[in-house]
Simulated scan of single mutants.
Amino acid sequence: MLETRPDRQLYDPALGQAAAAGRLAGRRVLVVGAGQRPSPPDEPEPPVGNGRAIAVLCAREGARVCCADLDLAGAKETAAWITREGGFASAVAADVSQPDAIEAMVQAADETLGGLDGLVVNVGIANRNGFGRETADAWDAVQNVNLRAHMLSAQAAAARMPVGASMVFVSSTASISPQSGLPAYETSKAGLAALARAVAYAGQPQGLRANVIAPGLIDTPLGRDASRARPARAARPLPFGRQGTAWEVAHAILFLLSAESSYVNGQVLIADGGLSIGAVRSA
């Protein structure tokens, strides 16, 4: 078991070791993007991905969870983890680039869970096209997954949700910085803030909330792949001398889903340890 390190802001929640408190007891949550890509066989201490951590933490806190992913095997692995810990989980395959698949996914989650009180949309793709090299088709492919899918998921879920439900869209600090050099990705992630505000505004009469979380550099299988492709990504000084963990992202989302954030609506929560304000130090 990993040890806590207060000097690095590593506590039990950041390590996936927090005691459950029933913060989502009785809730029914659909997590879109609940699978994760496999780590290399020789990976030392392979990390958990954001989507898997979100789904597992929701279940630990008492929610029934539907795990949706393009990779059904990955979604089933997440559901199996939840089941091993005594929770309830189902798995469904969904290609969110296809509008009809989104409607079917939400309907399946609603039926399997017996309703929907929470939605987390944790999906995103990028291309490698910098400004001046972008194409219409490549641009649209990114927008369709990173922004349209969230809108359609939110619409389908909102039509089924009771009073007091909550949605969270997973963005990125790329939404507030041009330094990735990938305008399609950056703009799609930035658009989620406007979408959350639109959903929050429209959902006010039914007591529906919608918020965004924007993680920074997080140690996940996807993040490690990105760092292998661009070593400078994680070589820079970082907040508390480390990348974040998927559990830290999951706990922020847990807050936004729970009644503890009942007066937080249409907002963006940046979870980057202070990277975006320059609060960094060497490891």
Results as ranks from 00 to 15, higher is better:
V170K: 03
E103H: 11
A158W: 07
A138M: 09
A158T: 07
A104S: 14
A194I: 01
R128T: 12
L116K: 07
L116P: 04
R128V: 09
N144D: 14
L119Q: 09
G181K: 10
M161D: 07
G130Y: 03
T135Y: 08
D117V: 04
G124I: 00
W139C: 02
A198G: 13
A196G: 11
A126M: 11
D95V: 00
G130F: 04
A158E: 03
A138K: 11
A94E: 04
A194H: 12
D117K: 05
Y201K: 15
E186A: 15
G132F: 11
A101G: 04
Q107E: 14
A141I: 05
Y185C: 03
W81C: 13
T135C: 05
G191Y: 03
V145W: 06
A108V: 04
G86M: 06
I125R: 11
L113M: 11
L147S: 04
A159G: 14
Y185F: 13
L195E: 03
A154W: 05
S180R: 00
Q98K: 15
E134R: 10
S153F: 01
G87D: 04
V199W: 06
S153T: 10
G130H: 08
A141P: 01
G86F: 07
S97A: 15
V163T: 13
T173A: 03
S90C: 14
A156G: 05
L113Q: 03
I125C: 06
S177M: 08
R128C: 09
G130A: 11
I102E: 05
E134T: 15
A80W: 07
P162C: 08
F131K: 01
Q179A: 14
A194V: 09
F169S: 10
V106E: 10
